[in-house]
Design a binder for these strands. Sequence first.
DNA 1: ACAGAAAACGAACGGTCGTACTATTCTGCG
DNA 2: CGCAGAATAGTACGACCGTTCGTTTTCTGT
Lengths: 217, 217
Amino acid sequence: MIRERTPSTAVQKARKGEETRAQILEAAVQQASEAGFESLTIGTLAQRTGLSKSGLFAHFGSRSDLQVAALDEAARRFTETVFLPALKAPRGLARLTAIVERFLGWTERAGLKGGCPIQAASAEYDDIPGAMRDAVADRQRTLARELARAVQMTVETGELAADTDVRQFVFELYGIVLAYYHTGRLVGDDMARARALAAFGRLVASYAPARPAARRR
Amino acid sequence: MIRERTPSTAVQKARKGEETRAQILEAAVQQASEAGFESLTIGTLAQRTGLSKSGLFAHFGSRSDLQVAALDEAARRFTETVFLPALKAPRGLARLTAIVERFLGWTERAGLKGGCPIQAASAEYDDIPGAMRDAVADRQRTLARELARAVQMTVETGELAADTDVRQFVFELYGIVLAYYHTGRLVGDDMARARALAAFGRLVASYAPARPAARRR
DNA sequence: ACAGAAAACGAACGGTCGTACTATTCTGCG
DNA sequence: CGCAGAATAGTACGACCGTTCGTTTTCTGT
């Protein structure tokens, strides 16, 4: 992976092939964001990257592998854009709120022009067995687990009721995010974001502890 | 298929062509439910219905028209399966609850094997200008309006707070439905349904009037 | 029963799809 | 510099795509 001759630049140079591969994935994620993973076609992508069909194809064993790789790349960016920065906030409600705020419209922050690729993949391959469905189901499980962890911590800081059903909370939280993505194109992003944040506030309030405990620390 | 002149049955027989067209749309909606509208291909559909490609094609001017027709048919079934029966419940919370209960898993009740076609279309064509996007956006607006009407009635019966932000309520309600569809394939339909109904109960409770008013009538 | 209309068919089109194969060009190390 | 191996290009393939068109079959109204 890491490669270097003279480390003149901060970023380590990969071998040429990996660099090209990264460029392809960049284009692929962009395309998937705009028109779904089913629109990831070898020819279109080759044209977009300036490669020949066969040259591009050689980087992945098959179209399916390319799609999965693009999904992985999208997930990597999601983590990088949403979760990692939110870890700087103190655990508990602050961090959970940071996650939600970054979750809403993360694609824009990540430079994607369309919607959330992971959600797109989820909708596209829900009922179609294959490598893509397996990959996307795996990603969704990971996401749910990480959200649950953040919620659990918020319970532990006393900012949510001790008897909070964490999975139920995550379910409702994810619903808000989905509604946000769904509504965005219809009523404008700002409005959708405001509605989503309001909904999140109401959700937190409805799970508030009986007698608000002092926050730890 | 079946054909007759004398109207011995209650249902008036359409001309042969319209009957075939209906069969095609039946197959198309089924297919869209299972694998999305982008999977609606002339060849596949012809094979499914036992028609020739050109024979099928003649019923619609283009693939795009076929897709839109399939979406319209799906929407018709949605109304038939979800809204119309719920109108029998008295206006207010009872009717709203009936709508939600029928909304969850309506595809199964309508005989579809996959997910909700309308939601699939929504995800697929969000960012792709064209006839399909226009059609699906229109459907979504109609749906939001009808949900808002049911919620508004519930406010008027005093079962929701008088200062309820109806659009916000619909936003959150729709999020629950989306989360249900999204979670269903991951954790099983029963579990997802239970979570969705619990979330709906919590949503209603969180918008409860300050001092619960007596229900009208 | 028959004529005219409607419906369905069959073949063909130019394209694009994913994927093999081989050939060429480039890159990085000794 | 030269050479091995990686990276990319080129070409060809069979399959399917949506669509067109002319023909044939089936229906329908009288």
